[in-house]
Design a protein around this nucleic acid. Structure first.
Length: 563
DNA sequence: TCTGGCGGCGCC
DNA sequence: AAAGGGCGCCGCCAGA
């Protein structure tokens, strides 16, 4: 059963209405008013586990979670609309429920509300902020009708895609991902502020009332001494470039890998400075004070926030936590982390989607690169790896050239799969993931490249030169990265279901890695659930394929000890 | 003084 | 080992 649901005032903790809807989107009963939305949803969820049809998971689900209410399934109209618009080559059009309905009725299409700003928990979330942002778009009368009407239309549009079964799976996974994202934000990642402080002091020295901590100040002095100057700021690329120039060394920029090739006494302290400076500014004491509360790091996840379908976060940098800082991620007493990451996910995805049976046979092995090396690269694993990475990312030079030639020769089907995606992109066309997520049109890429977008109707014009090649690399990678993201999303959704009935909670999801926080006695069961879910994800996406998707699973007390 | 673009680096 | 694809975040820097 599908149940359209809306909050009367958008708060999701007062009254609301719902209405049963048939799978084709036609109403299956009259609207029903409920006085206490969280309580009513909880009761109905317990009774029958309906699929909840709502405008956007981000609108109400966090509030429901705070009220202790979880749901098993939903259909997120906004995320689905974004997928369908993209599939139709209409990337970037407004995706909110109100916009989707306006397109159906011929009314003027309202723009989406601007995305919220990054906001650490507890900051300005009171009445003032809510008053400033106004009532949510999905409140008020007519919303139930809009939900049913737009759902029916989306149902029909999914059916009209080239691969309706796959696209339906994508829509279901995207909605499930939205639930997981909210639940992970609610649960938070266990984070020991005291250990964080201790490791910052070990790395950086004591924090100072004003200015950088002791170790950074020392390194600044060392760098100045090495250059024979005073007052140089190591964090100013322009000043560092000038200092090297005065020393007779011309470098194109001050990136770490460039400096590593330079012989000069300033290089060593500069490299150490960069590393520590990054930790201080991005994950130092200020970050900890803003983002850690009650022993938890609660970033705001944005499922589908990246064009490839990967998640993004709003504030907090949860997907870029430096490895050294992960020592602060410690399970509660008596609890463990089960951390699992997919090994060699992207080449396995290429093997599966391309239908290259020879590559798929290699993908059946635990080490795909090694199997590939034995098969065609004379046992040279490094060369096999370079070949695959080069093919997926569009590398054109260096050591990749001979490796790519071997790949083209021995695995022509897989090679052609990514080549075709690159050609399509360079010609201004669109490519799709396995389940049907579609890349943005070329005009977007051109804007990103600082060029004028093409004239109306000219989006299929080929674009030569560097921008065209850049778009070719983008579409080449998109078909792989977006499909890998789908595999991970399906794994996540499957795992979420498998964890029902346990105390275990999903607390971590980083592209191809998941983390579950659970009582120690549940750890083995959780580890097994993750492995089973990975297998299921492969089957759901690719059906009968020789390719396997093995996981590295660790049971640890500290995240830094995973793998 | 404020702001957008960019350099640089963290993660996958 | 590097470069190639995707991001977010920070501070610098030049221009309004």
């Amino acid at each position: 059963m599908l149940v359209a649901v809306v909050s009367d005032d958008g708060s999701w903790h007062g009254s609301g209405r719902w209405q049963d809807v048939r799978p084709d989107g036609t109403p299956a009963g009259a609207p029903v008013r409920v006085a206490d939305l969280p309580a009513a949803i909880a009761a109905r969820e317990a009774a029958e586990h309906p699929r909840w049809l709502w405008a956007a998971t981000t609108e109400g689900y966090p509030t429901l979670l705070r009220a202790g209410v979880r749901v098993r399934r939903c259909h997120d109209v906004e995320l689905t609309e974004a997928l369908l618009l993209g599939h139709a080559g209409r990337w970037g059009e407004p995706r909110a429920l109100a916009a989707a309905r306006a397109r159906l009725t011929g009314a003027p299409v309202p723009a989406d509300p601007p995305p919220r700003l990054p906001q650490p928990p507890g900051f300005a979330q009171g009445a003032l902020f809510e008053a400033m942002s106004g009532p949510p778009a999905a409140a008020g009368s007519g919303v139930l009708e809009a939900l049913a009407q737009v759902y029916a239309d989306q149902h029909a549009r999914i059916g009209a895609t080239g691969q309706p079964g796959r696209f339906a799976l994508l829509v279901a996974a995207e909605s499930a991902g939205a639930l997981v994202g909210a639940e992970m934000g609610h649960a938070g990642l266990p984070w020991r502020a005291d250990i964080h402080d201790q490791l910052l002091r070990e790395l950086l020295g004591a924090p100072q009332p004003v200015g950088p901590p002791r170790r950074l100040a020392e390194l600044t002095a060392e760098i100045n001494e090495a250059f024979g100057v005073r007052g140089l700021h190591p964090d100013s690329p322009a000043e560092v470039l000038r200092a090297f120039s005065r020393a007779g060394i011309e470098v194109p920029n001050t990136r770490a890998w460039v400096l590593r090739q330079v012989e000069h006494p300033a290089v060593k302290p500069l490299l150490e400075y960069k590393e520590l400076y990054r930790i201080w500014t991005a994950h130092g004491w200020a970050w900890r004070d803003a983002w850690i509360s009650e022993g938890r790091f609660r970033p705001e996840y944005v499922p589908g926030g990246v064009v490839s379908g990967r998640w993004a976060t709003r504030g907090g940098g949860a997907l870029q936590v430096p490895k050294v800082v992960r020592r602060a991620v410690v399970a509660d007493p008596g609890w463990r982390f089960v951390v699992a990451d997919a090994g060699q996910l992207e080449p396995r995805v290429l093997a599966a989607v391309s239908g290259d049976s020879r590559l798929a046979r290699a993908g059946a092995a635990g080490d795909l690169y090694a199997a590939l090396a034995t098969d065609s690269f004379g046992g040279d694993r490094a060369k096999a790896k370079i070949a695959l990475l080069g093919a997926m990312y569009g590398q054109t030079g260096g050591a990749a050239i001979p490796a790519l030639a071997v790949l083209r020769q021995s695995y022509p089907t897989a090679f052609e799969y990514v080549e075709a995606a690159a050609r399509t992109g360079e010609a201004g066309g669109l490519v799709r993931s396995w389940l049907g997520r579609t890349c943005p049109p070329a005009s977007t890429a051109w804007r990103d490249a600082g060029l004028e977008p093409p004239e109306e109707g000219g989006s299929a014009e080929p674009q030569g030169g560097a921008p065209g090649r850049a778009r070719g690399r983008f579409t080449r990678n998109f078909v792989i990265q977006a499909t890998a993201a789908e595999w991970a999303l399906v794994l996540l959704a499957t795992l979420r279901t498998a964890l029902e009935g346990l105390r275990a909670e999903l607390v971590l999801f980083v592209h191809d890695e998941v983390g579950v926080h659970c009582p120690a006695e549940e750890a083995e069961a959780v580890a097994e659930a993750v492995r089973v879910s990975a297998g299921r994800a492969g089957e759901l996406l690719f059906g009968d394929t020789a390719v396997r998707f093995p996981l590295d699973v660790s049971i640890v007390e500290c995240y830094a000890d995973a793998k």
